[in-house]
Deep mutational scan, measured.
Amino acid sequence: MAAAAAAGAGPEMVRGQVFDVGPRYTNLSYIGEGAYGMVCSAYDNVNKVRVAIKKISPFEHQTYCQRTLREIKILLRFRHENIIGINDIIRAPTIEQMKDVYIVQDLMETDLYKLLKTQHLSNDHICYFLYQILRGLKYIHSANVLHRDLKPSNLLLNTTCDLKICDFGLARVADPDHDHTGFLTEYVATRWYRAPEIMLNSKGYTKSIDIWSVGCILAEMLSNRPIFPGKHYLDQLNHILGILGSPSQEDLNCIINLKARNYLLSLPHKNKVPWNRLFPNADSKALDLLDKMLTFNPHKRIEVEQALAHPYLEQYYDPSDEPIAEAPFKFDMELDDLPKEKLKELIFEETARFQPGYRS
Rank of each mutant, 00 (worst) to 15 (best):
A2H: 09
A260V: 08
A143Q: 07
P298D: 14
P93T: 00
L338S: 08
M108E: 10
E60W: 13
H178L: 00
P11G: 07
V101T: 07
P280Y: 08
V304Y: 13
E186H: 06
I240G: 06
D179P: 08
P58R: 14
E250V: 05
R50M: 01
R67Y: 12
D149Q: 02
G8D: 15
D210H: 06
P196K: 01
K151A: 03
D88W: 15
G10T: 11
I72N: 01
V304G: 00
G215F: 03
A2N: 15
E81C: 11
I255F: 01
P93V: 13
A7M: 12
H141Y: 08
C127E: 07
L258A: 10
I86N: 03
I84G: 12
K342D: 13
R91Y: 14
I126G: 07
L267I: 15
P196D: 02
Y317R: 15
M293I: 00
K300F: 11
H232Q: 01
Y316I: 15
V173W: 10
A260N: 10
D251V: 02
L146N: 10
I240S: 05
R24E: 09
K207V: 05
D288P: 05
R70Q: 04
L121Y: 06
L134F: 08
A352E: 05
Y128S: 08
F279K: 07
R277D: 03
E350M: 14
R70W: 08
N82F: 15
V39G: 06
H120G: 12
K164P: 02
R353D: 08
T181K: 11
I324H: 15
A282D: 01
V39M: 02
K117M: 01
H61L: 00
I324Y: 14
R301K: 00
D106Q: 14
I256P: 14
V49A: 12
T159K: 05
V188S: 03
G136V: 00
D88R: 14
W212T: 03
H125M: 02
C166G: 13
H232N: 05
D44V: 06
Q97T: 12
F329A: 13
M333K: 00
L163M: 06
R148H: 06
K330T: 12
D177Y: 01
K99I: 13
A260E: 07
Q66E: 03
Q306C: 14
Y30C: 04
C65Y: 04
H147N: 01
D291H: 10
W212H: 01
L222T: 11
A286E: 12
R191P: 01
N144C: 07
T63G: 09
E81S: 10
R67M: 00
L267F: 13
S248M: 10
K73T: 09
V21M: 02
L76Y: 15
E81T: 13
L200M: 00
I217F: 00
L237I: 10
I84V: 10
R225K: 12
C216I: 05
G204T: 12
H80W: 15
L343V: 14
T160H: 08
K164E: 05
L184R: 05
K207M: 00
S213N: 01
R191I: 04
A4M: 09
L313H: 11
G242F: 11
H310A: 12
Q315T: 10
V51F: 05
T160S: 00
F183I: 00
I209S: 02
E197S: 02
P196V: 02
F348C: 10
L184K: 05
S57F: 02
H125L: 00
D124V: 02
Q97E: 09
L290R: 01
D337S: 12
K203N: 01
Q62P: 04
I165Y: 06
N123A: 10
K285H: 10
E250N: 15
G32T: 10
V214F: 03
H269E: 06
Y25E: 03
L313E: 03
P226V: 11
S202I: 02
I140L: 02
Y316D: 09
K330R: 04
E303S: 11
V304K: 08
Y358M: 08
V188I: 01
Q249C: 12
S246I: 03
P23N: 15
K270I: 11
Q315S: 12
A286L: 08
L184Q: 00
L290T: 05
R91K: 14
R353Q: 13
Y187R: 05
F78R: 07
V49W: 10
Y131Q: 15
E220I: 03
K164R: 04
Q355A: 14
S223E: 05
D20N: 01
E349G: 11
A3W: 06
Q62M: 10
H232A: 04
F228M: 11
N27Y: 00
V18F: 06
L163I: 14
L258W: 11
I133E: 06
P268F: 12
G37H: 02
D167L: 10
S153Y: 04
Q105M: 14
R15P: 04
H239G: 04
T118V: 11
L112R: 07
L244S: 05
R194I: 00
I243C: 14
L75D: 11
P323A: 11
I83D: 12
K342G: 12
Y312E: 02
Y317G: 15
K54P: 03
R15I: 09
R91Q: 12
A260H: 09
G230F: 10
L237D: 06
I126C: 07
E322C: 15
F296A: 05
Y131A: 14
L241W: 05
K207G: 05
G10V: 00
G204C: 10
R172H: 10
H310T: 10
L287W: 07
D44W: 14
Y187D: 02
D167F: 06
L121I: 06
L121V: 09
T190W: 04
L184H: 03
Y193E: 01
K99D: 04
C161S: 00
G230Q: 12
S142K: 14
N297G: 09
Q119V: 09
R353E: 09
M108F: 14
Q62S: 10
A6P: 12
E96S: 13
R301I: 00
Q97V: 12
D288V: 01
K340Q: 07
R79A: 13
C127N: 11
Y139D: 09
A189E: 01
M199P: 05
T26W: 08
F129S: 05
S202W: 05
P152M: 04
N201I: 00
A92C: 15
S57Y: 00
S57H: 15
L313D: 04
A174S: 01
L157Q: 01
A3C: 07
T206E: 03
I227C: 09
I56S: 14
G169R: 06
Y312N: 00
E186Q: 11
V49F: 14
I53F: 02
K231E: 08
C127H: 12
C254M: 15
D321E: 05
H269F: 14
E314D: 03
D337P: 11
L121P: 08
R50C: 12
V49N: 14
V14M: 08
I140G: 07
K344P: 07
S142E: 12
I243N: 05
L112F: 10
H239D: 02
E349Q: 13
F354P: 13
D162E: 00
F331Y: 00
T110F: 15
L137N: 02
N281R: 10
Y205E: 01
N45L: 10
D149P: 04
A327I: 15
E33G: 11
C254W: 09
I83W: 10
H299S: 13
T68L: 07
S41D: 13
Q132I: 05
P298H: 00
P274G: 13
C254K: 11
L218N: 03
D336P: 15
A2F: 14
Y187N: 00
I140S: 03
L267S: 08
I198K: 04
Y131F: 01
P226R: 02
N87F: 12
L200Y: 10
N253W: 09
P58F: 15
A171D: 03
D210F: 06
Y128N: 01
K203A: 04
E33T: 14
P196S: 02
N154G: 03
D291K: 07
K292T: 08
F348H: 11
Y36H: 09
G85V: 01
M293N: 06
N144S: 04
N238K: 02
N201Q: 10
T181S: 00
Y131N: 00
A92K: 15
L146D: 04
Y358D: 08
A286N: 15
D100N: 02
A325K: 15
A327R: 12
G32C: 00
N45V: 12
L28Q: 00
S284G: 12
R194F: 03
L112W: 09
G32V: 01
Q17N: 12
I302R: 02
I53C: 13
F331C: 13
M13V: 03
D106G: 15
H178F: 08
R24W: 15
K54W: 05
M221R: 02
Q105N: 13
I227T: 11
G16H: 09
A327C: 14
N253Q: 07
Y233Q: 03
L265S: 12
N297S: 04
K54V: 01
N238C: 07
L289A: 06
Q17G: 12
A189I: 09
A35G: 05
S213C: 01
F279C: 09
L116T: 13
F19K: 02
K73C: 03
G85S: 03
